[in-house]
């Protein structure tokens, strides 16, 4: 599996660390929302938005859309830009 980092180009998956569901970029504004934010996941069998860290590359946080059934990478963007 390879990820195409927007800054570094196609790189081996070993350069990246996985952080989990991209819902983590949406911090809740109320205390009640934090249980969901920390613990509850949609966990889809299919396209999944997730965060990867390019630790052995540019150090950027990436938002990756990947199919969890086929491992096909559908899109990669810098997490900061994907949010705004």
């Amino acid at each position: 599996m390879r990820l195409t980092c927007p800054l570094c180009g196609p790189r081996d998956v070993r350069e990246f660390s996985y952080r989990g569901d991209a819902v983590l970029t949406d911090r809740p504004t109320t205390p009640e929302g934090f249980h969901d934010y920390v613990h509850i996941r949609e966990n889809p069998a299919g396209p999944h938005d997730e965060l990867w860290h390019h630790g052995a590359g540019c150090g950027g946080w990436l938002k990756v859309r990947r199919d969890t059934v086929t491992h096909e990478v559908l899109s990669v963007a810098l997490a900061r830009e994907a949010r705004s």
Binding site: Y18, D21, A45, E50, V69, T70
Partner: peptide, 13 residues
């Protein structure tokens, strides 16, 4: 393998 997956197969790393 460290990432979400329903593939029932993993990668080489």
């Amino acid at each position: 393998d460290f990432y979400n997956s329903y593939a029932a197969r993993g990668n080489l790393p």
